[in-house]
Amino acid sequence: MKDEGGATGRALEPPRSGPGAEGSPPGERFRPGETVVVKALDPPHHTRAPRYVRGHRGVVVEVHGVHPRPDDVVTGAHPPAMEPVYAVRFSAADLWGEGDHSVTVNLWEAYLEPLPLQGTGP
């Protein structure tokens, strides 16, 4: 939606890193291939972590640049946190217990935590 521009406008600043970027520039907490868990967030304001991925685990597939955290923008935090945004892939079976497809969602770093260390178990 809401990018309301024509196709021929003057280019703005390009994103700082793209999906083709090799490895992780400094400052990125997660790397492609890493399993992450979406925090159990539920803020009263605009956020970009859709409900259906909260609390679920997914795999980072790409890094999509560094962007101001929308939550900070709408709550008036000055300046808003600048954070890496990741494309995180979830399996439908993990999200809903059924389905053979995947869903990839763009998530800010603050929404994610590392997969907790597994216990050794009996």
Partner: peptide, 18 residues
């Protein structure tokens, strides 16, 4: 109107979505 106001930084796209 929305395009003009966001370009003018009257508010941000995130505020509009909010």
């Amino acid at each position: 109107l929305n395009t003009a106001l966001i370009r003018r930084q009257a508010y941000t796209l995130d505020e509009f979505r909010d």
